[in-house]
């Protein structure tokens, strides 16, 4: 805690290369973040090559083998099978792909809308702020899960519909957080200085404010990926998640309820996988946050 803090300045003046190197060095120091980043790369690789590395067709049932009960791990089925006799390893691999696709695309969607709205509202204030925040409020004030159910009902249970629904109904938190931060940044010396020097609005927002928003966006986004993945699982719980027979970590977990007492692999495998993915996102987000934020750099 005795480290000297650098004054809060926008990193605009720093040389880009040096900055990147500094970020990487800082990030590297965060051991958990580094390990998590590697883990995420592995998960992404799994997601990309899922259908090639899966030993079995993930949707092929084998009733004779299962006899209505999940089968424990064996030499042939490394993670056992579910009650349908479907290879659980293959299903998990494919589920990682689907869950990552749902989580990442939904969050990209939400961050783009959320940051745009929050930045414009906070920076321009006045009427712009009023209109944008009323729109945000309208979306915020409709109970999200109910709206999600209604939209899911309209669009039907398909994957793109699911992503669209989750993304479009979760951007408001980011917008509010960004706006709050921008309100505060607007009062800071370097922004006032930039304004006095006649910088354009877009330049102030893009060059002076955005870098200072990165930490809050990263924290919000990393927390949103698991939120999106978990929202899918909640919809699965209602039978409106990723439609069968396709596997998602959410619907695997939802199906696992029944076997919580008698087949550990059925709930441990998707549970641990979801937790690992989420943990990894959080640690990476954390590491990035510490590394990117000029004020917290020691």
């Amino acid at each position: 805690m005795t480290a000297v803090k650098l004054p809060a300045v926008a990193p605009a003046g720093l040389e880009l290369k040096q900055e990147r190197f500094r970020v990487w060095r800082a990030f590297k120091r965060h051991r958990l973040a580094l390990v998590s980043a590697i883990l995420l790369i592995i998960f992404c690789a799994i997601a990309i090559f899922a259908d090639r590395i899966a030993p079995f067709d993930p949707n092929a049932t084998n009733a004779a083998l299962a006899g209505g009960k999940p089968q424990p791990p064996s030499a042939e089925h490394w993670l056992g099978t579910d009650a349908y006799g479907r290879d659980y390893l293959s299903r998990t691999l494919v589920a990682i792909r689907i869950s990552l696709v749902v989580g990442l695309t939904a969050v990209v969607f939400q961050v783009v809308i959320g940051v745009g709205t929050g930045l414009l509202a906070g920076y321009f204030g006045g009427r712009t702020d009023n209109i944008l925040m009323r729109i945000t409020d309208t979306f915020l004030a409709v109970p999200g899960f109910m709206l999600l159910l209604m939209v899911a009902g309209i669009l039907g249970g398909t994957l793109p519909a699911l992503i669209l629904a989750i993304g479009a109904l979760t951007w408001m938190t980011v917008a509010r957080l960004v706006r709050a931060e921008v309100l505060s940044l607007k009062q800071r010396e370097f922004v006032t200085a930039a304004q006095c020097m006649g910088s354009s609005h877009w330049r102030i927002m893009g060059v002076y404010m955005l870098p200072n928003l990165v930490s809050i966006i990263v924290v919000a986004a990393t927390l949103s990926v698991p939120a999106a993945i978990l929202t899918e699982s909640a919809l699965s719980f209602l039978g409106l998640g990723v439609p069968p027979p396709n596997a998602s970590l959410g619907n695997m977990l939802s199906d696992a309820q029944q076997w919580i007492r008698s087949a550990w692999w059925i709930w441990v495998v998707p549970g641990v996988t979801i937790s690992l993915i989420v943990l990894a996102f959080n640690f990476v987000g954390d590491g990035l946050r510490d590394a990117l934020d000029p004020r917290t750099r020691s």
């Binding site: 978990l230 939802s254 309820q257 943990l279």
Partner: peptide, 22 residues
């Protein structure tokens, strides 16, 4: 504390509920 908190976020709510209930 971070790990504890993060484990908290990463556990699906119905999973936790069912485990606690058991």
């Amino acid at each position: 504390l971070s790990i504890l908190a993060l484990v908290g976020i990463s556990i699906p709510i119905f999973w936790l509920a069912l485990l606690l209930l058991q």
